[in-house]
């Protein structure tokens, strides 16, 4: 699924500035527990979370997660956005709930992390 389609489906706003709308995102994951994301997140995925602190970006960065979407209309601090920009992590915000965001993406064919083998 193209990143611009995801943006449309989530009715999201981009906070990190320019990005390639054609970038393909195949996998999604969602949690407010960053250790779960570290354990199961996949490179190139989108992460949906309602947790808004700097560790979300660090988690995305070390896990090679491309897009972080903050849900429920939560707006992250400027330092979070800056860190994301520095590390080429794209930040979205959406007013939708976690459930609705995940549901819409799943319905449109985005795969779950567990779709892939949980190897190292």
């Amino acid at each position: 699924m193209k990143i611009m389609e995801i943006k449309e489906i989530l009715e999201a706003e981009v906070l990190t500035g320019e990005y390639d709308p054609e970038t393909e995102i195949e996998i999604g994951c969602s949690s407010d527990l960053m250790s779960e994301i570290l354990a199961f997140g996949k490179p190139g995925a989108i992460l949906l979370t309602s947790l808004t602190n700097i560790q979300v970006i660090n988690t995305a960065n070390v896990s090679d997660i491309k897009v972080v979407c903050f849900v429920m209309g939560k707006i992250p601090d400027e330092n979070i956005i800056n860190l994301a920009r520095k590390n080429d992590v794209i930040v979205f915000i959406t007013k939708l709930t976690t459930f609705e965001s995940c549901g819409r993406l799943y319905k449109n064919g985005l795969k779950s992390c567990s779709y892939f083998n949980l190897d190292k």
Partner: peptide, 16 residues
Amino acid sequence: ELGFGAGMGLPNIKKF
């Protein structure tokens, strides 16, 4: 509150 402390840190390290 910061998204950690769920008892997965060390098991995660072991996994990777």
